[in-house]
Amino acid sequence: MTKLQNFSKGIIKENPVLVLVLGTCPTLATSTSVESALGMGIAATVVLLCSNIVISLLRKIIPDKVRIPCYIVLIAGFVTMVQMLVKAFAPALDQSLGIYLPLIVVNCIILGRAEMFANKNGVFDSALDALGMGAGFTLTLCLMGTLREVFGSGTFLGMPIPVLSDNKISILTMAPGGFFIFGLLIAAVNKFGKHKPKKSDFGCEGCPSAEICGKAECGKEGA
């Protein structure tokens, strides 16, 4: 796989949200407006980039048996740094992201990329992978944020849009609208996506806890 593919696969072919279906919680929760979607995307990308680089550097030092706890500690450390930076320089963003900022720790995308890519590949490739996945995550969040903000509140980045601001569908900015738009987007990807994802790349099996979860149910579904 070339360097360029390492970067670009995260944006469309292996889009973490729409194709791998990871990190659904922050996607649904922070896509109520473009601004918070963008903020969440960038914060998660920074954490993903740092964690992928460090985990890739340490991949020969961390013993295999305790790798997951090690990754979690590293990721939590980076999340704390990002949290402090956002609090200091973008307090408004901190307000709008609220609880979801510390919850980047348990975002499956980050642990998933550490487990699936960074612990097997070199530093440069891992950084490219992180940037690509982060870009895919951010773009998807922004797409959902745009749809929900334009049709739900009739604004774009806070600026009112002439006709739509008088005919807004407020339910789209609330919880049911989030599920609905996300469902429609995935259906659209299923319909128009040229690259059919391999089964092993899909859903549960891409998740870092798939092994344990498989015992429960996902494995049986094969989804």
Binding site: A175, G178, F179, G183, L184, K191, A223
Partner: peptide
């Protein structure tokens, strides 16, 4: 269910309606 909605999409739409009832 329409083919492209099978699996996850229809589950999400159902979740949307369930969440509507909680509102």
């Amino acid at each position: 269910i329409p083919k492209s909605f099978k699996g996850l999409p229809i589950t999400l739409i159902a979740a949307s309606i369930t969440s509507l009832s909680f509102m």
